[in-house]
Design a protein around this nucleic acid. Structure first.
Ligand SMILES: [Zn+2]
Length: 362
DNA sequence: CGCATTTGACCCGCGC
DNA sequence: GCGCGGGTCAAATGCG
């Protein structure tokens, strides 16, 4: 069954010892590296991760933050080309991302950067923005709202209640023409965690699980249970390091996180000050989900200390950060600059929600 | 009883 | 044209 998979296994060893990061900024053709043979010369593990995520269309960012966790990053985050992180990370990488990879709406639809955290306590985040012509497509009226809930065409919208069709009512119905849907911003978090269920403050319903080719670990598919919210989440463990969990989020929540109502923890003084009503018009909505959230989260919940250690079962803040359910430790970090994308992203974000948008999301 | 998870079936795009 | 791999749906099941 798996014939081309072995290739990747090669690099699968260990690596968490040296700070080796790989950065990819370029538009990948179409046949991503999976089968081709590697358009780039990735070092090794990086590739492994990418593979997992399917870096084809997204940007991956990894922030090496040893013990300082987000806080530190944040500090650096502010400035564009942040200084070299605490690690020996080549800052040049970072520069590239923001400057090159992100802002290019038109060119290829894929550019991504991957930084691999070589250290045990670091995680990486990746973002992806795909198409640019999506607007055109939408214009046709084909899928008016794919975010909201219309998921048809590409995924599967089988209709049983109305069998007007005749036979192919199996799973998908080629609604319109082609137009692959699925061009939503998605960003992936690489979190080092032993537990699989990280509570990010949102309620998810698992709708599928599949075995991953090169991995002994399966990949789980989740969807936000909130009505009208089509956010999806994909969780899988790295084949290289079982301790690393890669969570890929797709889409944006159109509602505030269920938790955080007050009463959960008591954190959230005045958190959304700036990002709340401000202008998250561009960066915020786009993939920046991460960024925004990060900021807010960090500032408000200040999980730093807790982030990297054991967290109580109910210690899940209402933030987007992963917290553990049971016990175990996880660490997550964010890239300093990655979400600064604006332009096409705005387009993608509909935000019909009554709220001021999504103050936070997973 | 309602809801979340489990799990097999199925679809689709793509590479060969 | 077929097979593979990724992704989703839906029925069944389990749990609170
Ligand atoms: Zn949601």
């Amino acid at each position: 069954m798996e014939r081309k998979d072995h290739q990747h296994n090669l690099y699968q060893q260990q690596h968490l010892d040296y700070p080796s990061m790989a950065l990819f900024s370029d538009e990948i053709p179409t046949s991503l590296a999976g089968g081709g043979g590697g358009p780039f010369d990735l070092p090794f593990d990086q590739k492994g991760f990418m593979d997992l995520l399917g870096f084809q269309d997204h940007y991956h960012f990894a922030a090496p933050s040893p013990s300082s966790s987000l806080f530190d990053l944040l500090g650096q985050l502010q400035p564009p080309p942040p200084a070299p992180l605490q690690m020996e990370v080549p800052s040049s990488l970072w520069q590239n991302q923001p400057g090159t990879a992100v802002p290019s709406p038109v060119p290829a639809d894929s550019s991504e950067v991957v930084n691999n955290p070589a250290t045990p306590n670091s995680s990486s985040v990746s973002c992806s923005s795909n198409d640019r012509d999506r607007a055109a497509d939408k214009a046709m009226g084909d899928d008016e709202d794919e975010d909201g809930e219309g998921r048809r065409g590409g995924e599967g919208g089988r209709d049983e209640e109305e069998e007007e069709e005749d036979k192919t009512k199996k799973q998908l119905k080629p609604k319109k023409k082609n137009q692959k849907r699925q061009r939503q911003p998605r960003f992936a978090f690489m979190t080092k965690s032993e537990v699989d269920h990280l509570d990010d403050g949102y309620r998810w319903r698992k709708y599928g699980q599949k075995a991953v080719k090169n991995s002994p670990h399966p990949r789980s598919y989740y969807r936000c249970t909130t009505a009208g919210c089509g956010v999806k989440k994909r969780v899988e463990r790295s084949s290289d390091d079982p301790s690393i969990v890669v969570t890929t989020y797709e889409g944006q929540h159109t509602h505030p996180s269920p938790v955080m109502q007050r009463g959960s923890i008591g954190i959230m003084p005045a958190t959304s000050t700036s990002y709340g009503s401000a202008t998250h018009s561009s960066a915020l909505l786009s993939l920046p989900t991460s960024q925004n959230h990060f900021h807010s989260y960090m500032y408000r919940s200040s999980p730093s200390p807790s982030l990297i250690g054991n967290v109580s079962p109910n210690a899940s803040f209402s933030s987007a950060f992963p917290s553990l359910h049971q016990d175990g430790r996880f660490e997550t970090s964010f890239p300093p600059s990655l979400l600064t994308d604006h332009g096409l992203l705005q387009d993608m974000v509909p935000l019909p929600a009554p709220f001021p948008k999504e103050p936070k999301e997973e």
